[in-house]
Design a protein around this nucleic acid. Structure first.
Length: 712
DNA sequence: GGCATGTGTATTTTT
DNA sequence: TACACATGCC
């Protein structure tokens, strides 16, 4: 039977390796896909192929690193097979999001209440801190790991499935002496979460793993005939365990990844998953994609040279057909401010040559490495979006409003109560605890179960006696707001208004008098405004953010889905929040190297290519750390299609906490040592502002072109 | 107990 | 800058 191209458009234009991967039948398939080798396309085509060959779309599970990635692939697949609905039915998303979705269906078989909520890392940190205070570990004269560190320790331990002592020794050696306190806090933390019906990120994975081992495990595994996993090099031990549990009857599993791009070991990802895949899944077919369609030959040559010294990996030699005379440039600068200046100028130069800002990016190791550049870009009116920096969702006022919504969803959420109660006058940690005890929020304490006295929110509606006098009135406002949202009267009796015709009611089956989500948010906003004024300055900016939040919520009907999505898939840049009119605007991308994974740009600028920055001096304790930094640098370089700049400031001022003129001289990143002029061009940034290498006035300084530009 | 104020200390990357 | 913690006052 022949398959004409018209009926299988997804095979058109694929090279032989890609085609082999796409048309692979059943059984385990490992696709080792180097940077820029058309991995996304191959996966999308494979999904299309599977559906075309008769696999029901909803029997396919596509696991990706970000939700954006799965959306993109499924869109492509849907276009290829020409059925709009096909993409929508495939199960796609991150491990965490899929875990959440499965747990909403099968929660009973792992003893989880339906209305569990999900907390993010900072909530987890707050809970750790709360417990730490109660255990009296705050008073120690010795330094104790900070709350974020505690979360990292716990998370790493769980995800790597490695004992605490070993985890500390390997990854947190400076906390080794505090192991007893750390253990105690973690023990409590686990109990308290359970009592609150709250899961953290790691629980989502653990409970999914538990699901596969539960009596319904086989049914759940059999839901999916095919499982495809993207970025497999960045999965961890628990994720590998989940996949094994999901492959009982069918061994149709496709994993795609590049061991040379494994950059998430701090999240307990292990490159062993991809390296050992053929042993884990006997009968594995391995396909290697080596033709790079993205970068020019010189860029690829330099990137390959950087990876040359790396030790353990799949052998593959990336090659490209894209000829170019332009080698990557190392731009040496006097210091960071000169780096900033020359980056701006290079960006504008390419822009004037017709490369829009959208097709350029600036990459860096750590979020704060772009601080000076951001100021300068703003000064020069160059629009940009930053990925990987501080998130919208971390802002205190956003967390405030979310805490209120979460209490409506899950009245046992201790962290949210703690946060909310603190707003009121005269309430500190002790009073908050007392009120929570009166309301029956804390059902598990010191490992012992307390009596369950029903929903604390409903008890609140009946009134509280333990709150200080000053807090009575605002607490009354809170009661009124909650009562309105839940459609209850204040003495906690019958619904105030019976809402009909809302049978699929978004609110997950709570009281039937509940307001619609948008109305709840409106009500909460009204309650919150005076609180916001009391708590913070610049209230209007913050309240506008709340409106943004309401805007996002308008796309949802279910409160539960809204708050869960927000924690599992938070807006990553300001662009995610922008409304339609802004979408066609041209803007530059600033991104951490980690967040740049999977992206590509015509022109890429890498900042701070100095030892201590790349590799980060916090990662050079051991060989593994240095290896990972090398891969990180490799990822950054291979994002570039046509032009690659690597900036290297010679001098660093060390006035991190104040001003001063102390400075030290930096070394070029070790990863570029030994790369000769055949691979890289050396440039020295012009030392005089506004004058280029050859001593000519640049366009933004030259009076003639400057006035000319104003007239445009 | 709560809270305002002062002091000392920092470990990068994200679902 | 932010955060944890100590002090001193209400």
């Amino acid at each position: 039977m022949s398959t004409p191209i018209e009926s299988t458009p997804w095979l058109f234009g694929l090279n032989s390796a890609q085609r082999a991967a796409v048309t692979h039948g059943g059984g385990p398939l490992l696709i080792v896909a180097g940077a820029g080798t058309g991995k996304t396309r191959t996966l999308a085509c494979r999904v299309a192929h599977l559906i075309d060959s008769g696999v029901a779309a909803d029997r396919i599970l596509l696991l990706t690193f970000t939700r954006r990635a799965s959306g993109e692939m499924l869109n492509r697949a849907a276009k290829l097979i020409g059925k709009e609905t096909a993409g929508g039915k495939v199960w796609g998303g991150t491990f965490h999001a899929v875990a959440n979705r499965l747990l909403r269906i099968y929660h009973n078989s792992v003893d989880l209440p339906a209305e569990f909520t999900v907390m993010d890392e900072s909530d987890a940190g707050d809970l750790m801190n709360l417990i730490r205070g109660e255990l009296g570990l705050s008073k120690k004269d010795r330094r104790f790991p900070r709350k974020q560190t505690l979360v990292k320790i716990y998370s790493h331990m769980v995800n790597a499935h490695r004992p605490l002592a070993k985890t500390l020794e390997l990854h947190f050696p400076w906390c080794k002496d505090e192991i007893d306190g750390v253990r105690e806090i973690i023990e409590q933390y686990v109990l308290r979460k359970q009592g609150q019906n709250v899961l953290d990120y790691d629980d989502l994975l653990l409970y999914w793993a538990a699901l596969t081992a539960s009596p319904l495990g086989e049914e759940i595994a059999d839901r999916f005939e095919h499982i495809l996993v993207d970025e497999y090099q960045d999965t961890n031990a628990v994720q590998a365990e989940i996949l094994r549990g999901m492959r009982r009857k069918y061994d149709n599993i496709t994993v795609v990844g590049d061991d040379a791009q494994s950059i998430y070991s701090f999240r307990a990802a292990t490159v062993r998953n991809i390296l050992d895949f053929p042993e884990q899944y006997p009968g594995t077919t391995t396909v290697t994609l080596e033709e790079n369609y993205r970068s020019t030959k010189p860029i690829l040559a330099a990137a390959n040279a950087v990876m040359e010294p790396a030790t353990e990996r799949y052998t593959k030699e990336l090659w490209s057909d894209r000829k170019s005379e332009l080698r990557p440039a190392i731009v040496s600068c006097d210091d960071e401010s000169q780096q900033t200046d020359i980056v701006c100028r290079n960006i504008l130069e390419h822009y004037e040559q017709g490369i829009p800002l959208m097709r350029q990016s600036v990459l860096f190791r750590a979020g704060h490495h772009s601080a000076m550049l951001e100021i300068e870009l703003a000064k020069r009116n160059i629009p940009f979006h930053k990925y990987g920096g501080l998130k919208f969702i971390e802002a205190a006022h956003i967390k405030d409003v979310l805490a209120l919504l979460r209490l409506l969803e899950n009245p046992f959420d201790e962290i949210s109560w703690f946060r909310v109660l603190h707003w009121f006058d005269g309430v500190g940690p002790q009073t908050a605890r007392r009120v929570m005890d009166e309301l029956g929020v804390r059902r598990v304490l010191d490992g012992a179960e307390q009596a369950d006295r029903g929903s604390p929110v409903l008890r609140l509606l009946e009134g509280v006696s333990t709150a200080p006098v000053a807090a009575r009135e605002p607490l009354g406002e809170l009661r009124a707001a909650f009562a309105d949202c839940l459609g209850r009267s204040l003495d906690g009796e019958a619904p105030r208004l019976a809402r009909d015709g809302d049978d699929d009611g978004g609110a997950g089956g709570h009281g039937r008098g509940e307001l619609e989500l948008s109305a709840q948010i409106e009500r909460i906003r009204a309650f919150y405004q005076p609180i916001c004024e009391k708590l913070y300055d610049n209230t209007d900016v913050r309240m506008r953010d709340i409106d943004q939040l309401a805007g996002i919520a308008s796309r949802y009907r279910s409160r539960q889905r809204f708050i869960t999505d927000l924690t599992l898939d938070p807006p990553v840049s300001t662009s995610d929040l922008a409304q339609a009119p802004h979408l066609d605007e041209d803007f530059l991308i600033l991104s951490t190297i980690h967040s740049s994974k999977g992206c590509e740009w015509d022109v890429v600028h890498i900042l701070h290519a100095a030892d201590g920055m790349i590799p980060s001096d916090m990662a050079i304790r051991d060989q593994d750390g240095i290896d990972e930094e090398r891969r990180l640098f490799y990822v950054a370089m291979t994002r570039a299609k046509d032009v690659l700049y690597i900036y290297f400031p010679l001098r660093y001022y060390h006035h991190r906490f104040g001003l001063g003129d102390g400075h030290g001289y930096a070394q070029l990143t070790r990863f570029l040592h030994g790369l000769g002029p055949d691979l890289l061009t050396q440039q020295r940034a012009g030392a005089i502002e506004g004058v280029d290498d050859r001593g000519r006035l640049s366009a933004d300084v030259d009076p003639r072109s400057r006035v000319g530009k104003l007239l445009e």
